[in-house]
Design a protein around this nucleic acid. Structure first.
Lengths: 233, 233
DNA sequence: TTTATAGGTGTATAGCTTACACAAATAAAA
DNA sequence: TTTTATTTGTGTAAGCTATACACCTATAAA
């Protein structure tokens, strides 16, 4: 037996929702599509899955092509499979969302794609069903960030508590009391205070912190505490 | 322009992780695979996505074929795309998990597939990477149930609080204090007390409840409360 | 030297979560 | 008919967590 000979084969693509944070606003990286259909319109970075690569590899490859970054936070989100989503030919798309440190992003690479960062709240019109994909990513980042410390992925290695707070406020679109916020994040044991300050944001300067990687990995999978002794199912 | 002519096409399948609850144990419905390779071995219900159906439709079709059920809780889980996961030919599989009321399940339909319910904790060896798929479903049901009232999908329309508690205890593999449990579920406003009792489980009998559908839909998307005023992003 | 701006910190209150024990109902057994 | 065994159903006190809230500090710029 060599093939499932009677079955129809389809195109499979990946699309990446790439998010970054510039200290003020959550942003999304979009490219100008360089082939038909919809050539020249704003689009997510993506492409067809190749015969010899897994889907995860395809997503990582696309992310690296556009940003130069490897080893960043990249999570499979949802697979979109309506029959007519691509008008040319049926294409199923597996979406991924990536959280990157916007400072490490290599600007020159993205010039080939005419890429641009847009505030997530003011995303331009996107091709096909990509609006829906971005919407799914917005939901997912909140959902996940509410329980896991993923937002740290968006910050540089050294960051200040006010920066972290601004990020949370922008993801959850809400104001948080700074006394309570700092109590809370410090209580997690995730942060190590450094000796130096960031003087860019204010006259007084804010102390830098870095992640306590050990506690970070330990807390990463931490799940809700409202069931006593959650144990393996 | 008619096709993306240079690209490789591949097979796309769906696999369903079908869970049910018999009042004591969380169970998974498996079939004996009826074609090569791995013919005769235990497997998830699934099959190839057809050219004229969406992926969601393919999952619903498979679920209906095996159980006779439509309109049940069915959620896309994850897409598995390792290049060698199917030894015959590269096949990408989109997994779904379904929560069904085991009493509505139509036994005779599943005889064609030689289907059987297994305790989720004692799932037999499965083909390909399906063990991993089941593992992902186990994680997801807990994750989701911790925040959304999805476990009601596993119960009949009329159920008792002790039944509900047994279900939560079996999903989270833990003992819960019944006074606290009943206080909590009643406080959600999700339950409507009925006049009659279930006398099967005990001498005294336990009052039946049914879902308050209005509150159910309202609470369904309810997300964590540890961010003040969560608003649209 | 003054002023303007953002950073950093403590406490009291309310609300929520947890731990915990006994009586009621009734079928089955004696 | 009485006793026994089993499961249901309920309240309260203590500890913990979340929240609301205001002032001083550091420093660059004027």
């Amino acid at each position: 037996m060599h093939k499932y000979s009677k079955q129809t084969r389809l195109l499979l693509a990946v699309d990446c929702i790439i998010l970054g944070f510039d200290g003020e606003t959550l942003k999304i990286l979009l490219i100008k599509r360089d082939f038909q259909p919809e050539k020249g319109n704003w689009s997510l970075m993506g492409g067809f899955v190749q015969p010899e690569e897994s889907i995860d590899q395809a997503a990582n490859r696309n992310l690296k092509q556009l940003t130069g970054l490897q080893g960043v936070y990249l999570e499979q989100l949802h697979t979109f499979g309506a029959t007519k989503r691509d008008p040319i030919e049926r294409t199923v798309s597996v979406t991924y969302f990536a959280l990157i440190d916007i400072n490490k992003y290599q600007t020159q690479l993205s010039q080939d794609y005419h890429a641009e960062w847009f505030p997530l709240k003011r995303t331009p019109k996107l091709i096909f069903d990509q609006q829906e994909m971005v919407e799914a990513a917005r939901k997912q980042i909140r959902y996940k960030a509410a329980m896991h410390p993923i937002l740290f992925e968006l910050l540089p290695t050294k960051f200040t508590i006010p920066q972290l707070q601004t990020l949370y406020e922008s993801v959850f679109n809400t104001a948080i009391d700074k006394r309570n916020f700092s109590k809370r994040v410090l209580a997690t044991g995730l942060l190590i205070k450094l000796a130096d300050k960031d003087k860019a944001g204010s006259k007084r300067g804010a102390f830098y912190y870095q992640l306590n990687m050990q506690n970070y990995y330990a807390k990463f999978q931490a799940i809700m505490n409202f069931i006593p002794n959650p144990d393996t199912l």
